[in-house]
Amino acid sequence: MKRWWLAAVAVWLAASGCAKEETEQKQSLQGADWMRAQTFGTAKGAVLDQGPAERAVASLRQRDDVREVVAVNSGERLLVAYQIPHLKRWKRKKIEKEIAERLRAMFPGYDVVSSSDLKIFWKTKDLKTKMEKKRWDERDLQREIGRIEKLSKEQT
């Protein structure tokens, strides 16, 4: 009986370990199912100009060490959140540094905040979805981006 139990657990763990990343992500999130929703990149429906955000998304999507990207901009602020594929997380710091430098070079006049943190990705994605649903004025968007930026810099 014990052996059967052990074998069943081993098979289950092996099967779940071999599952594709996308399937795992779908299971890991509740309710809103954030990851299942396709990332179209930027809030196209928003009245506010999202040109810089769209360019940032298009640029980062070309990299094979970035899985999903979402970006929002307002005024001189650009917030970019992305996901690094699981096995490439070994080089996370290096990838983050490269992306931050690339974005700063692309948008010299902007205050660029980039993060690979999952929470920041969720928050940015949420903000983008909200922007598509209702009209946002510049000040509200700035405040929301500021909140996410503050969260991304939190250490403890």
């Binding site: 890991s28 999130l29 509740q30 943190d117 999952l118 929470k119 920041i120 969720w122 969260l151 991304s152 939190e154 250490q155 403890t156």
Partner: peptide, 13 residues
């Protein structure tokens, strides 16, 4: 994930 989803914790915190 629970702390990240329901509270303001990032992956780092």
């Amino acid at each position: 994930y629970f702390y990240m989803y329901f509270f303001d914790f990032t992956e780092q915190t």
